[in-house]
Simulated assay, not measured.
Amino acid sequence: MAAQIQKNSIQSIPIQMGTAQASVIQIQGTVRGIESIRFQESLKTLCARSDHSILLLDLEQVTAIDHRGLGVLVAGLRAARQSQKRLLLCALNDALRETFRETQLDQVFKIYPSRESALQDIALDEPKLKVRVAHWSAELAA
């Protein structure tokens, strides 16, 4: 059962901070079951087609994730690396943070406490940063 999603759209909002590029992908709802398959397709496409070298997945509005969803994130990390991109995570709620700790995926992914802290850290590495924000929800992908 998918979580209720308030926003059912994908949008990109460019934020100019120079010439380096990053995409913030805000994920909403659940990432499990059939939603995982849809999310995997979206993430794979994003990794392949994005001209941005940094992909930041904002998980603040993710209500649940299962082993398939975790597998999608690992596959996304692999796809990002193959495309010479960095895949970062931010804003995990307490339950997600515990899941990542228990599965030791917190040792695999760079995880930031918030979107703001991630962007600040990225900006230190990439002082001229351009950010695009996109929204993904399971209901949109259906």
Rank of each mutant, 00 (worst) to 15 (best):
Q4M: 11
I5A: 06
I5W: 01
I5M: 07
Q6S: 11
Q6A: 09
K7H: 14
N8G: 05
N8V: 10
I10V: 13
S12L: 11
S12M: 13
P14T: 13
I15Q: 13
M17E: 14
G18Y: 04
Q21N: 12
A22H: 01
S23Q: 15
V24W: 01
I25S: 09
I25N: 07
G29H: 01
E35N: 10
R38D: 15
Q40T: 09
E41W: 04
L43Y: 05
K44L: 06
T45A: 12
T45S: 14
L46S: 07
D51L: 11
D51C: 08
I54W: 02
I54P: 00
I54N: 01
L56N: 02
L56S: 03
L56A: 04
L57Y: 05
D58S: 08
L59C: 14
L59I: 05
E60P: 03
E60Q: 13
Q61C: 08
Q61S: 10
V62F: 02
T63M: 08
A64F: 07
A64Q: 07
I65A: 00
D66W: 05
H67E: 11
H67A: 12
R68W: 07
R68F: 07
G71P: 07
V72W: 01
V72H: 01
L73T: 01
L73H: 01
A75V: 04
G76L: 04
G76Q: 10
R81S: 11
Q82D: 14
R86V: 02
L87S: 03
L88D: 04
L89R: 06
C90G: 06
A91F: 02
L92D: 00
L92A: 09
E98R: 15
E98H: 12
E98L: 12
R101I: 02
R101Q: 14
T103R: 09
T103E: 09
Q104F: 06
L105Q: 06
Q107L: 12
V108S: 04
K110H: 12
K110C: 08
K110R: 13
Y112M: 08
S114M: 12
E116I: 11
E116Y: 11
D121C: 09
I122L: 09
A123C: 10
E126V: 06
P127H: 06
P127N: 06
L129N: 04
R132E: 15
V133T: 14
A134D: 13
W136T: 00
W136D: 00
W136M: 05
E139M: 08
L140N: 03
A141C: 04
A141E: 14
